[in-house]
């Protein structure tokens, strides 16, 4: 493949790229693109893929203890979906010139990130409900918007992924609703999960627009289609009523409903906590990475065997 780095930026190519963006046409892997665009999309897709895979850990923590055969089947299928999304996103990201092995290496070297939300622990069964309902719910809002992102393979991946995510959100909400109809202990467990996951879910959308320096360029390139605050507000407005329907309280004493805008305004987000978790000091940062590295290393002999076998097959033919 021609190295994009060494390709001279021709004015025609740049004009062509910009025109495509202008017309809302997708940028495809073989199209010329500015190096910074390629890097930004790659970073975002890689981070997205890693998030899907690391997200399997907190949910996997409950797969053996899921309380009914039905719950087990649904949770396993959901985790499989997440893994599948990871695979799909890794493949889509590979179209930008980096293979999965390298992406995993960057993750292990902590040069590539994953969503900070997975650095919180899944402590009780209600957390599985909260993760499905709130975390996947927030992810959907973001991903629906990304269906219109300018990089073709990413946009198409999002279309596919969104279909499954809405099922995940329903699954999570159903767990919460069932528990809220259950015993006082179950109700307390559900509210506790709500209290712990509400604010981190809101943080998933990233800093306020004023503090998000990359947003402007990403919007210009149409990688990002809506701002952090706008997406967060969409999530807040659709989720709060869902909480009230099943009797959950929102852990925000400053929460107000604005009759004019028909929209909720929330209290201040604890950005110190957000940045602390992003920088690696969340409750599970170390655990998640240790887990991933440990099992990646334990599987090394399998991957080596696979490679040796494939090589022998080629030599034989």
């Amino acid at each position: 493949m021609e190295d994009i780095l060494t390709t001279p930026i021709s004015q025609t190519a740049l004009a062509h790229f910009e025109a495509r963006l202008q017309n809302d046409e997708k940028i495809e892997p073989k199209d010329w693109m500015p190096e910074a665009y390629r890097k930004t999309v790659l970073r975002q897709m890689m981070q997205h893929a890693h998030s899907e895979v690391i997200g399997m850990q907190p949910e996997g923590n409950w797969v053996l203890r899921a309380p009914s055969l039905r719950a087990k089947k649904i949770l396993l299928a959901k985790i499989q979906d997440e893994g599948g999304h990871g695979l799909y996103l890794y493949s889509a990201a590979e179209t930008l010139g980096m293979d999965r092995t390298e992406m995993i290496q960057l993750l292990h070297e902590q040069k590539a990130k994953y969503s900070s939300i997975f650095n919180y622990p899944a402590l009780t069964w209600a957390d599985i409900g909260a993760i499905g309902w709130l975390v996947d719910g927030a992810a959907i809002v973001n991903q629906v918007s990304l269906q219109r992102t300018s990089y073709g393979p990413y946009a198409r991946a999002m279309v596919r992924i969104c279909k499954e995510e809405s099922f995940h959100q329903r699954q999570g909400y159903e767990i919460m609703a069932t528990m809220m109809k259950g015993t006082p202990e179950q109700q307390a467990m559900a509210q506790d999960a709500m209290n712990r996951w509400w604010w981190p879910s809101l943080m998933m959308f990233g800093p306020h627009d004023a503090d998000s320096p990359h947003t402007e360029q990403s919007m210009e390139w149409k990688i990002k289609r809506e701002s952090n605050d706008r997406l967060r507000q969409k999530f807040i407005d659709k989720t709060i009523d869902q909480a009230y329907v099943i009797g959950l309280t929102i852990p925000d004493k400053d929460l107000k409903f604005n009759e004019e805008t028909k929209s909720y305004s929330i209290g201040p987000i604890n950005w110190d906590e957000f940045w602390s978790v992003v920088k690696g000091n969340g409750p599970c940062n170390k655990q998640r990475m240790t887990h991933h590295i440990k099992y990646h290393e334990e599987g090394r002999w399998v991957r080596e065997a696979l490679e040796a076998f494939a090589k022998k097959q080629i030599e034989m033919n």
């Binding site: 895979v53 399997m56 850990q57 996997g60 797969v63 053996l64 087990k72 089947k73 396993l76 299928a77 985790i79 499989q80 893994g83 599948g84 990871g86 695979l87 890794y90 887990h291 099992y295 334990e298 599987g299 090394r300 002999w301 399998v302 991957r303 696979l306």
Partner: peptide, 22 residues
């Protein structure tokens, strides 16, 4: 088999093992 969840040697196998579990 569900114990393999997030512990497979490659992502594809993580999915295959949990699929057999399912």
């Amino acid at each position: 088999l569900a114990e393999w969840c997030s512990r497979g040697p490659i992502l594809e196998e993580d999915l295959a093992l949990t699929n057999i579990s399912l």
